[in-house]
């Protein structure tokens, strides 16, 4: 990795991550303090380990913040052009999670594959064909493995 000479700026991305980690770890520790067992059977309790982990994360968050403020290497550039595809695919994953129960496996998977292919740049006609064929293949393939996939609440 080449390090450009102008890298001595505050690494905003790492600094932001450090703040998220610090806040997250603080909340994690605060929550750990509320764990109270009904019976005290051991010298320390259910909160010991989380407190250790949370404490460690607070220290690490501080260390990351320190190194970020001193300046770091800039992350991968490229902006929107670079991230729209992963972003769009992740959106489809989320939609899949929400739609699987109401719409059922065939419809959700078919749509997921179709839109996924369009995101990655498969030509539309081919995308439709592939989506239909692959959905059918997966439906029967997983049936064969004994996995019951939902047909969809809508169609009951």
């Amino acid at each position: 990795m080449e390090r450009p000479p102008a890298a001595r700026r505050v690494d905003r991305s790492d600094a932001g991550a450090a703040l998220v980690i610090l806040v997250g770890a603080a909340l994690y520790v605060r929550e750990a303090l509320t764990f109270r067992p009904f019976l005290r059977t051991e010298p320390l309790g259910p909160s010991t380990f989380p407190l250790l982990v949370g404490g460690m994360m607070l220290l690490l968050g501080a260390a990351l913040l320190r190194s970020a403020l001193r300046g770091g290497t800039p992350g991968p550039g490229g902006g929107v052009a670079r991230y729209w595809r992963p972003g769009a695919l992740w959106g489809l994953v989320l939609l899949y999670a929400l739609a699987l129960t109401p719409l059922g496996f065939p419809l959700t998977t078919g749509l997921f594959l179709l839109l996924g292919f369009l995101v990655t740049g498969v030509r539309p006609a081919r995308a439709v064909l592939l989506a239909i064929l692959l959905t059918a293949a997966m439906w029967y393939g997983f049936r064969l493995l004994g996995v019951r996939l939902p047909a969809g609440d809508l169609f009951r």
């Binding site: 695919l89 489809l92 994953v93 899949y96 999670a97 929400l98 699987l100 129960t101 496996f105 998977t109 997921f112 594959l113 996924g116 292919f117 995101v119 990655t120 740049g121 498969v122 592939l130 692959l134 997966m138 997983f142 493995l145 996995v147 019951r148 996939l149 939902p150």
Partner: peptide, 22 residues
Amino acid sequence: RVLLPVILAVALVGTYAVNSSA
């Protein structure tokens, strides 16, 4: 571009198959 959405779909169906839970 064909392969990646398919891998993702298999990952999702595989996830669902473990506990049948959305």
